[in-house]
Design a protein around this nucleic acid. Structure first.
Lengths: 123, 123
DNA sequence: ATAATTGTATTAGTTAATTAATACAGTAGT
DNA sequence: ACTACTGTATTAATTAACTAATACAATTAT
């Protein structure tokens, strides 16, 4: 897994975001075992404590769970994953729309902008 | 002006963002005089030093400039404001599209999602 | 059995953001 | 002249995030 951090937000929050995205996007499958805290920390280039903090906080979302000595796993509940995905979609979309609305763009104009800028992303 | 801060990002960065948005959206007109650092700090509920840091950094963008004892003003250059607006639109849109693409949505699906979630925002 | 790996806990040091409390020099209005 | 206000500078204290270096108890693999 590839990690990408900006310096304008807490790293552990970005870890939670990126790991959640990997799960809800299907890059990590239900029941998949994660790398160990130490391995993930090395992979992401952060301190093990920082990775542990992120993973530990993520337990609350239900997307991952840990079994003491066997490791940490993606939830087996596809339903929970779908719910988390829906929530992320809603949050991101609302934030974007709110912003574009504040900038004075109509829905129609937003579509035009996406068509133009999105031509590089959407094949 | 109404301020709104979350605790997951540095306050001075959020000040820059919100003030920039106010300018490029036209809430603040070219040449408008801003409230003093102390007044803005009181209005936003932050320390004057934090407001000063935000405003001082914002000088670099060219959207505001200060004249030592007279106060601080929005740039008179409508062109600079338009350029800043275009940049903000591009950044926000790319970020959103990138996210939705990572979640597996096509351009068509993104439009559907915006139509549904955006119905509360766009008139 | 025993060696290695797991998540977790603890203590300490560093850095950046924020608040706090002043201070100063220049200008506008009176 | 003088008062009030401007942006700016400085020094200090506090807090949260991050890193560092270990340690431990439980389980898996050999």
């Amino acid at each position: 897994m590839k990690w990408n951090f900006s310096n304008d937000r807490a790293i552990y929050l970005q870890i939670i975001e990126q790991l959640s995205l990997a799960i809800v996007s299907g890059a990590l499958a239900p029941g998949d075992r994660l790398l160990s805290v130490r391995e993930l920390a090395a992979e992401a280039g952060v301190n093990p404590n920082t990775m542990q903090k992120a993973l530990s906080e993520m337990e609350q979302t239900g997307l991952v769970h840990s079994s003491r000595t066997a490791g940490r796993f993606v939830t087996e509940s596809r339903d929970d994953i779908l719910k988390a995905k829906a929530e992320i979609v809603r949050e991101r979309t609302e934030e974007f729309i709110h912003h574009m609305n504040a900038l004075g763009f109509s829905e129609k104009e937003v579509f035009e902008i996406i068509k133009e800028i999105g031509s590089e992303y959407f094949e």
